[in-house]
């Protein structure tokens, strides 16, 4: 049986930035990205260039593929088709310039490590294989934990922190990566007001320092206040661009429109065909 979705063509080595629609200035260029789990497509044909030094929200209903896009960019989810480049280079070449904040539920918070240990993990990339965490790196981690207001909690075991504090530990860990581009998966999910303010503060500092931050976001109320750019997603990109032009009533209806979209139905059909049903 011929698979319906083909593997990405690895031979086309021309950088995306050579194409007119993409630019080497962009921290991330996504080209014709399709992601499928067990051959059932979850994200179809995404094209996107993030502008440098901006805060970008990815917004859409449950199951729209918001986290999936991030994971595919970072190589954590398999690409069924398409390519992703960062500043015109492949991921492997610029790994150290990219930070990642996974969803809080993705790790085991009973793990016997302190908050500082977790933040220090952000330094591992700079430390490299087989070398211990040196005093300078620990100090740098301590500085990051201080920036999110948790200096007093540095030596606590992570299960003793509240949900909001855990989220800030993750944020501090991303800061410790000292990246130029960050991907954050639902950092605002289920946090208290103090944490939300701390996160926004950090996002603004990051932007002021020249970084771009791409955030999966669920709270439509705060999109306009917190972000410069928005990508409205429901399995495909419904609209993307500056919040002022893009975040409109019309586009939101298109993104969140109640019924199953044609794409979702098509994805189901693909999955059924693969099952032989």
């Amino acid at each position: 049986m011929t698979p319906i979705l083909s593997k990405p063509d690895r031979k086309s080595a021309t950088p995306l930035s050579a194409r007119p629609e993409h630019s080497a200035e962009s921290p991330v260029s996504i080209h014709a990205l399709t992601v499928a789990y067990h051959r059932k497509p979850v994200v179809w044909d995404v094209d996107y260039d993030a502008p440098p030094q901006s805060l970008v929200a990815i917004v859409g209903p449950n199951g729209a593929g918001k986290s999936t896009i991030i994971k595919a960019c970072l190589g954590l989810a398999p690409k069924a088709a398409g390519r992703v480049e960062f500043w015109g280079q492949p991921y492997r070449a610029v790994r150290k310039r990219i930070g990642y904040v996974p969803q809080r539920e993705s790790v085991d918070w009973d793990f016997p490590v302190s908050a500082l240990d977790v933040v220090a993990m952000g330094r591992y990339g700079k430390i490299g294989w087989c070398k211990p965490v040196s005093r300078q790196h620990r100090a740098a981690a301590m500085e990051c934990i201080d920036r999110v207001g948790l200096a007093d909690y540095a030596s606590r075991q992570i299960s003793q922190l509240s949900g909001g504090q855990q989220q800030r530990v993750f944020l501090a860990r991303a800061l410790a990566q000292e990246a130029d581009l960050y991907f954050m998966d639902e950092p605002f999910a289920g946090v208290d007001a103090a944490t939300e303010r701390a996160i926004v503060q950090v996002l603004r500092e990051l932007k002021a320092g020249g970084a771009t931050v791409i955030v999966v976001h669920h709270d439509l109320q705060t999109v306009a206040e917190y972000f410069d750019e928005v990508m409205l997603l429901n399995m495909r990109v419904v609209a993307e661009g500056p919040v002022s032009d893009t975040f409109t009533q019309d586009n939101l209806v298109k993104t969140y429109g109640g019924r199953l979209t044609l794409l979702a139905e098509a994805a189901e059909a693909v999955a059924r065909a693969e099952r032989g049903g």
Partner: peptide
């Protein structure tokens, strides 16, 4: 350190 990150957060470990 590698075993620790692989056990705690394999996702981050992979991106690093």
């Amino acid at each position: 350190k590698e075993l620790r990150i692989a056990a705690f957060d394999p996702g981050l470990g992979k991106t690093l």
